[in-house]
């Protein structure tokens, strides 16, 4: 299902224009990471994908639906949305109920709901916590509950607003594996993150936002090779990219594996 954004402008009711002249498309099955400094407008942009915010000018379509003429609840059949702050999402007293909330709104049968919830919980590694109170879990786990409640909707498009925040190494690895797995299933994934290494490992396309505009939009390698432009948006490329450049590697590398490959080549005996 294609997302297309056409000359999108947006201002909050207080009149400040937060998004300007955005136009792009995201095809079905793409993995896109949106990066940019605090307040660049990333959250504001993705809230247009499920109609939580409507454009002040221009339009956004998801498949054949214009967000302007559909309710947020209708958009929820196509776009799953993980909020930046899980505490603004979680409201049930049991993890199970929280995760079941979305599927039950889709009008599924109790058996189907049960199946969706179990699958989602096991994906985020919380299968044995389904009876717990969400507030008895650590914040990082609460974020996973919120994520499960979005996964359980089984939408073709997933928008994740900073899923990496507060996750430890294991949580990050699990999240990465989950994203790779969802891509295998053909889902479109759009993630906001401040973790450049995570973006490099799991995303093929990067959008860099600065003050409500799109500064760069391209393949991960190309984007992270542009040190000067990134610095302009107050961002740093992934560690491996910087290390590779410092060592004078001939190509831009973004992940540990790429670095090792490129590094090994430089040490091969020359004939």
């Amino acid at each position: 299902m294609k997302i297309s954004v056409n000359d999108l402008h947006f201002a909050y009711p207080n009149g400040v224009e937060v998004l300007r002249e955005l136009s792009f498309e995201i095809s079905s099955g793409e993995r896109v990471a949106i990066i940019g400094q605090n307040g660049a407008g990333k959250s504001t942009l993705v809230k247009h994908f499920n109609g939580l915010l409507k454009p002040s000018r221009g339009f956004v379509t998801i498949g054949d639906w214009d967000t302007q003429s559909h309710t947020v609840a209708q958009m929820a059949q196509r776009v799953g949305f993980l909020f930046q702050n899980p505490d603004e999402q979680i409201f049930k007293r049991r993890v199970f109920d929280e995760v079941a909330f979305g599927p039950s709104n889709l009008g599924l049968s109790p058996e189907e709901i049960e199946r969706h919830v179990s699958a989602a919980l096991s994906r985020v590694g919380l299968s044995d916590m389904r009876e717990m109170h969400p507030y008895d879990l650590l914040p990082a786990r609460r974020k996973l509950v919120a994520l499960a409640s979005v996964l359980a909707m089984e939408t073709p498009i997933l928008v994740l607003d900073e899923p990496t925040i507060g996750q430890d190494g294991r949580g990050l690895a699990r999240l990465g594996a989950l994203i790779d797995d969802l891509t295998q299933q053909g889902k479109t994934i759009i993630t906001i993150s401040h973790d450049m290494d995570f973006c490099a490992e799991h995303f093929e396309r990067i959008m860099v936002m600065k003050q409500g505009r799109m500064l760069i939009d391209g393949a991960t390698h190309d984007v992270f090779a542009r040190f000067e432009l990134l610095a302009e948006a107050f961002l740093e490329p992934p560690q491996m990219t910087r290390l590779g450049r410092a060592l004078g590697l001939p190509e831009t590398v973004t992940t540990v594996n790429e670095f090792l490959g490129a590094y090994a080549k430089t040490r091969e005996p020359r004939h």
């Binding site: 609840a73 209708q74 909020f83």
Partner: peptide, 19 residues
């Protein structure tokens, strides 16, 4: 504000409140 945020999150998971 918090109530508004949670209602928004519920709409994003398919709760129809607009109609």
């Amino acid at each position: 504000a918090k109530a508004m945020a949670i209602v928004n999150a519920q709409r994003a998971r398919g709760l129809e409140t607009e109609t």
